[in-house]
Design a protein around this nucleic acid. Sequence first.
RNA 1: GCUCCUGUAGUGUAGUGGCCAAUCAUCUCGCCCUUUCGAGGCGACGACCCGGGUUCGAAUCCCGGCAGGAGCACCA
Length: 458
Amino acid sequence: MRIAPGPSGPLHIGHSRVAILNDEYVKRYDGVLINRLEDTNPEKIDPDAYDMIPEDLEWLDVKVHSTVRQSERFHLYYDTTRKLIEMGKAFVCICPGDSLKDLKAEMRGCPCRELTVEENLERFDRLLSNHYSEGEAVAVIKTDIAHPNPALRDFVALRIVEHPHPRTGDKFNVYPMMNLSVAVDDHLMGMTHVIRGKDHLNNTHRQEYIYDYMGWERPRFYHYGLVNIPDTVLKTSLIRQSIKEGDYSGWDDVRTGTLRALQRRGITPDAIRRYWIEGGIKSVDMQFSWENLFSMNRDVIDDASNRYFYVPSPQTLRFHGIDRVESHAPLHPDHPERGERHIIIREGDDVLLSPEDMALLQGSGMVRLKDLCNIELQDGAHYAGTDLSVLKKGVKVVQWVDQGSAPMEILMPDGSISSGRVERALMAEKGDTVQLERFGFVRLHHHGDKVSAVFAHR
RNA sequence: GCUCCUGUAGUGUAGUGGCCAAUCAUCUCGCCCUUUCGAGGCGACGACCCGGGUUCGAAUCCCGGCAGGAGCACCA
């Protein structure tokens, strides 16, 4: 099986579907997966993508057995085209511009279509020897010019592009169209099964003409339904533009749907895999749900994510009413063996609350500082015992930090920053993701002795 | 316009003629547990696009509507 990305940029969540589905079948049936970089349009190649795509696949835990670049296989596409011309199944068209298109709509072939094999072979040789320039000549595969489906009437196989290729420079100027190169490669690489999106349905039919002309055995084709991914910037060209303008920080900007962005946010490959496997390969169009993906991710990371308190936009209260009080909170409520966070608050220390929780305290007069004690609003925070039964009477539990807490900035999915303070203990956290209680799961990023975070989901 | 694909709860899925007054997950809402609005437990809400036909029996097969999507490129 294979995945066949065009190297125009890094992979995004949409690309991950075809990668995971193919990978999953290969793993289940002990097959072979080829990553075939379809770099046959020099105008749409980002040289960096040659490295980014394999990196993205590796992160996704997609096992690629070998990687090939179509730009190294042009001779194969030329050979097959020559054979098709010899069989009278292809021709070289030198009609101007749109006439081929117009004639197709009228179910009529262009004059070149009726040329003899010898004349076409002559033209083909001229095509390959720089006789024509861009737009002057194309090699066309004959199908049925009167096919009821206009999408299947004669299609272009080779065309001239005068644009340097990042890998082959100006060595070639005759480039294959995907239907030619895909059919040739899928056959030569021994594809038994092809899974791809429904948008390729007509391409499959076009490629089947080549299979049948050449007497090749067709692979089994499967076309999954299209997916609509809402509220997400996926288009590579738009992202590139925004990066260039300095609006996005890079390919991993959290406002985009690239795999790099999801990785940065702490969305796991496991969750992405589960999501696409649940969707399956049936050809019904689907609506992508971030909610469902986040739910799966929560399921994956919850157990490993230790708990900490985070207080956004902290407001200070002076604590008094008792000499000292200690808090003992587990790093993870389901895993007491991991240890606990331990803080001592003394008379005169500061405790910090979020504006919302401060309002709660002002409104009700009392809150529970989680894992510490109750406080009343009375010239600051006045110790009010440790009796938990007040919770039954409606006293709310809130997160808090002490004066020894560390400043923290959290990058939110909309690109904004939530700044506040976290427990000092988080600075020693070794895990990748943590749950800031009542705030959400975040991925930690360590730089030196500083820590920042990127919001994943609630 | 032409051609093709597809229609199960808000979302995603199971279901291939009787075990379906339809599965599971998510979302939303209750309750229990919990010093988190997390996790766990219990419960509620909520769907077979419509109309014909075949059949003793249809979500499942057939036909016709309707709806959504894709393609009709010298992009992939």
